[in-house]
Design a protein around this nucleic acid. Structure first.
Lengths: 252, 252
DNA sequence: TCATTTTGTGCGATATACGAACAAATGTCA
DNA sequence: TGACATTTGTTCGTATATCGCACAAAATGA
């Protein structure tokens, strides 16, 4: 790509939008400038542009994003058939399992939820399509990383902040790589309270008819109700059934 | 705002992103140019910028958005406390009603879903946070429009495409304005299959402690199970309870 | 094959970014 | 309270980047 094929004003504006996620709802020009590492004058123009277009409100001091900004992410959810295709299967899966079922894809070091059917809240945080979790310590993340060539998986781990969320969190890259091999061989991943105390989950890949992994689906359950040791026996058959149904759907 | 405080390259780029929602997943440069009414060279630069930043993939012919684009909308959902605040109440409401419960805000002529707790699918389309419906024919839309000064509500209706979705859809602006008055007086709106055959819903406003309407919540049910005439008796008390709980939460 | 559509590129005119300077607001301390 | 320091928002001139057009090249299809 040539130098002149890059619209830096556009790139800067997107950076400004993302600055809102990291901290608070309201940002002043100076705050946004610090977060994005862009000149105050530049940030100001971007924010005024967002306000002019209705993507942001401005009270003279602080800028806040408006719901119109959701159109941007929604462009993806509406344009990509995968989330809508998965949803009814997740609903069915969730109902039969009596637990929450979700689907996600990989974006860098994180997994991104694209569909979800929740029975009740098991996690302290609120997961909706668009929500993100670190891949290395989520069951769907393990499945998605296991699907990458090992060199790529290593590269992702190298870029990840391998944080010890709980006493059970695996943070050693070699141990994780070994786990990815097991996931590839056995076709599922189980997380036992590595992300949050009290939460277990089990995931399998969603493959198209060429065997390529295009997403992951999981079932999450409170550890108090379903010990990790029972996750496989209880939920793997259901997940495998859903996986088989989806494989037939995802021909291309 | 001065002319030079507007970054048109940014505005054009955002228009390009939104072009993906309207049609398909894959857009060529020429297609995107037609949809956005922008010069091909401009669209090409915007798309290449998106690809360079990882927001889009490019196979040499078609561009597709990547899940990274969800970061933009998620910046809003994460930055705004409302969706997360509402979610547990919707879960509780949904469980007690045995039906789907949702929350939305107004964006122009449309309502935007910000949180949702679904029991089972009652609609043909898949609603997730970020999904949009026309305000004039949705129960939450009626509630949100009723909260506007009447002149503004009229202006929104004037900009709306008042489509006859079903035989029951109200499309006369005067009839709708009269209905808004009733909603204001009685505090709830009921939709009887005006959006989709077989779907009834009832909504109430979510107000902060100053009585300002900041969102709407609803319960949707299949008309076959719950006739419109029974919606009020069955669900209004539950909605009112949730509304009262939220009012205490939303002081500012 | 030729016609049609689509994509890529060079160029002049125009719009934008940068950095610095200034003004206004805010905070600090005697 | 008042003087000073700091932070923030805004403006301006200029160097630089982007826009839209026109044309060339490539792909597509009849």
């Amino acid at each position: 790509m040539r130098e002149t094929d890059f619209v830096s004003g556009f790139a800067r504006g997107l950076k400004v939008i993302e600055a809102f996620g990291e901290t608070r709802q309201r940002l002043s020009i100076a705050e946004a400038s610090k977060l994005t590492d862009l000149d105050r004058a530049t940030v100001r123009r971007s924010l005024l542009t967002l306000a002019e277009l209705g993507y942001a409100d401005y009270d003279g001091k602080f800028f806040t994003l408006t719901p119109k900004i959701l159109r941007l992410g929604h462009a993806y959810l509406a344009a990509t058939p995968l989330p809508a295709l998965l949803q009814p299967h997740l609903d069915h899966l969730s109902e039969r399992a009596g637990q929450s079922a979700s689907a996600s894809v990989l974006d860098g070091t994180e997994i991104v939820y694209i569909s979800r059917a929740s029975q009740r809240r098991v996690m302290s945080i609120n997961l909706t399509p668009g929500s993100r979790l670190p891949a290395y310590c989520a069951s769907m993340g393990r499945v998605l990383l296991a699907a990458l060539p090992e060199s790529e998986a290593r590269a992702v781990l190298a870029r990840s902040e391998l944080k010890q969320n709980t006493a059970k969190t695996k943070t050693d890259p070699e141990e994780l790589i070994a786990e990815f091999r097991r996931v590839r061989a056995e076709g599922y991943a189980i997380i036992d309270q590595e992300l949050e105390i009290g939460l277990c989950s089990i995931a399998v890949p969603v493959e198209n008819d060429r065997g390529e992994t295009v997403a992951a689906i999981n079932i999450g359950a409170p550890a108090a109700l379903v010990p990790a040791a029972e996750m496989k026996a209880r939920y793997l058959p259901l997940l495998k059934e859903t996986q088989a149904a989806l494989r037939l759907l995802l021909h291309r």
